[in-house]
Amino acid sequence: MNKKIRILIAKPGLDGHDRGAKIVARSLRNAGMEVIYTGLHQTAEMIVETAIQEDVDVIGLSLLSGAHMTLFTDVTKLLKKKKIEDIIVLGGGIIPEQDIPKLKKEGISGVFGPGTRTEEIVEFINKNVKK
């Protein structure tokens, strides 16, 4: 058996910046993971459909535009509706401190604000993905 962690890095919403997402993608690759990158402007439906086909362990959502509450939770709601329980959802980007508890309650298990070291994200994933 030779399991590799697979992770989808997706950018929901309208902002056109994916530099941060690409940096995280590279770090995860360098940590031995398979990173599926899908580009900008993804809807929740596209993200979930892609996550199913790619059979990922983790979905990493990245957002700079501040609409994270709805865009992130759209994804977790859709996963719940489809009874998909084995995918961990992470959020990154500019997220105000006070929103983090709400996001966690909605099923975003890890929230990483600006200035997060990529090693923290790698560690979090390694610890939380079932081997």
């Binding site: 995860l28 690759r29 360098n30 940590a31 398979e34 990158y37 899908t38």
Partner: peptide
């Protein structure tokens, strides 16, 4: 390609195929 050093991979071909996602 899988990186021979880390064993990880960046799989980016889907970026050009998103019209098929739904």
């Amino acid at each position: 390609p899988t990186s021979p050093f880390s064993g990880g991979a960046l799989l980016g071909d889907r970026v050009r195929m998103m019209e098929l996602a739904m």
